[in-house]
């Protein structure tokens, strides 16, 4: 419990800076309104106004919190938890694309890593392309993937998942190449003395040895996958998902809605990384590697 105090201090500091910044950023609009209404703003009036504007430049935490509550808990209580205005619904849309893309990315990344480790030609030729793929801005590629897949009749979940996959396979390739190469010379010699086949060496030695590396990659990969899903939602015409909420919010200047979608995305990412961390702890402990 010694950790609670420092964490709490940081949270309070962030909240203080946030509220103070809101006053500074939202003050011009407050003065503007006051001027047109010909009234003089006292300091308390100013603070009250900047913390409660409808479309503030920077909404304050309690505005965001109440927006999140209105679009999640409150809607659940009124039995509309999965309506199209609920953040739970939008989170679910983004989450499903994230998980599908993450699964595809993990499979693709692992397959590429196996190829790179076992095939010298792939070792020399694939890695530069893998790295190049990540230097292209995802925001530039995303619309093209959506358009191309739409042209061949694929729409909905899969195009978004493809963009998630595009971002999440990279850390898996890098981590798994390192992980599959982590057995030392002695362990490989030992397999050789038993005249083990390449497949036996892979399943019994290389793959289990790579698990710590895999989990480290998965944590990075799932966060990247969420970013991919959100970016993928931007050019889909903003129908549903956290990305759609962000886009709609920015069209109509609904900053409170933008911030609530942002914080929900952050919470979703933290939750997913946490779950992987938990699986990692349990798995590695059972494998005697933690």
């Amino acid at each position: 419990m010694r950790n609670v105090l420092p964490i709490l201090t940081i949270v309070l500091a962030i909240l203080a800076i946030w509220y103070a910044s809101a006053i500074a950023l939202n003050a011009p609009w407050a003065y503007d309104k006051a001027k047109r209404a010909n009234i003089e703003l006292s300091a308390t009036d100013l603070v009250r106004d900047t913390w409660s504007q409808k479309k503030p430049k920077l909404p304050v935490p309690h505005q965001v919190a109440s927006e999140i509550w209105d679009t999640t808990g409150a809607m659940v209580l009124s039995g509309r938890g999965f309506s199209k205005r609920s953040l739970i619904y939008h989170s679910w849309v983004t989450f499903s694309a994230t998980i599908l893309g993450f699964a595809l990315g993990t499979v693709l990344g692992t397959l590429l890593a196996v190829g790179i480790v076992y095939n010298r030609t792939m070792d020399l030729s694939v890695m530069p392309w893998v790295i190049t793929s990540q230097t292209v801005p995802i925001i530039a590629i995303a619309p093209m993937i959506i358009v191309v897949l739409n042209a061949v009749g694929i729409s909905g979940l899969l195009p978004k998942a493809m963009i998630s996959m595009y971002l999440s396979f990279f850390p898996v390739v890098v981590g798994m190449v390192k992980g599959l190469r982590s057995p030392d010379a002695m362990q490989l010699d030992q397999m050789r003395t038993w005249n083990a086949s390449a497949a036996q060496t892979f399943w019994r030695l290389r793959l289990p040895s790579s698990m710590p590396y895999l989990f480290a990659s998965l944590k990075v990969g799932i966060a990247a996958s969420l970013v991919g899903a959100i970016v993928g939602e931007l050019p889909t015409g903003a129908v549903a998902g956290l990305g759609a909420r962000l886009l709609a919010g920015s069209y109509y200047g609904q900053t409170v809605q933008i911030w609530s979608a942002l914080l929900t995305a952050a919470a979703l990412a933290a939750l997913m990384v946490g779950v992987i961390g938990l699986i990692q702890r349990v798995t590695l402990k059972r494998m005697g590697m933690a």
């Binding site: 002695m186 362990q187 010699d189 030992q190 003395t193 030695l205 289990p208 059972r286 494998m287 005697g288 590697m289």
Partner: peptide
């Protein structure tokens, strides 16, 4: 063949 290190798999 017995190596210098036991090299048992922890898992």
């Amino acid at each position: 063949y017995v190596f210098q290190a036991a090299g048992l798999y922890p898992w």
